[in-house]
Computed example of a mutant assay.
Amino acid sequence: MGLLSAHQPVRPQWTCTACGAPWPCRTRKRQLIEEFRGARISLLLYLSAYLVQACADLPLTPSGLLHSRFLAWPRSAALRDEPPQ
C-alpha cells in the first residue's frame, strides 16, 4: 500500500477528515483505485471491513445505502483487472 492518506474516516459519523464528505470520499476512492490496481477482490475485502464498522456506527442508515457507499463503486469498469501483457 502507498502512503497514509489524509482522507480517512471520522467515526462514528463516517465523514472524511480532509474534506468532510461522506467517506470514502471521491479523493479516497481514486487513491484506493490506484493502491489496489489489479487487486479488486482485495479492495472489496478491505472495504467490507469498513462496511461492517459503519453498520455498527450508523444503525439507522439503510443497509442498501451503506452497501452502495462502500461496495458498489469498486465494481466499476475502472477497477477491472488489467489484461495480462
Rank of each mutant, 00 (worst) to 15 (best):
M1P: 06
M1N: 10
M1A: 11
G2M: 05
G2R: 13
S5R: 05
S5Q: 03
H7N: 15
Q8P: 03
V10F: 03
V10D: 02
P12N: 01
P12M: 02
P12Y: 01
Q13G: 09
W14Q: 06
W14I: 01
T15Y: 06
T15N: 05
T15V: 00
T15S: 04
C16I: 03
C16E: 06
A18T: 07
C19M: 04
C19P: 03
C19K: 08
G20K: 12
P22K: 07
W23D: 00
P24Q: 10
P24I: 11
C25Y: 11
C25Q: 09
C25E: 08
R26I: 04
T27Y: 13
R28E: 15
R28M: 12
R28G: 06
K29F: 12
K29G: 07
I33M: 10
I33A: 12
I33G: 09
E34A: 10
E34N: 08
E34Q: 10
E35T: 12
E35M: 05
F36H: 07
R37Q: 15
R37Y: 14
G38D: 02
G38F: 05
G38A: 04
R40H: 04
R40A: 05
R40S: 04
S42Q: 13
S42F: 14
Y46H: 15
Y46T: 11
Y46C: 08
Y46F: 12
Y46S: 02
A49N: 15
L51W: 14
L51C: 09
Q53M: 14
A56F: 12
A56M: 13
A56Q: 10
D57K: 01
D57W: 06
D57T: 00
P59E: 05
T61K: 07
P62V: 01
P62G: 00
P62H: 04
S63T: 06
G64R: 13
G64F: 13
G64N: 13
G64E: 11
L65V: 01
L65A: 01
H67S: 07
R69Q: 06
F70N: 03
F70C: 05
L71C: 02
L71M: 03
A72G: 03
A72S: 07
W73G: 05
S76Q: 14
S76C: 12
A77E: 15
A77P: 15
A77L: 09
A78R: 08
L79V: 05
R80Q: 08
D81R: 09
P83C: 03
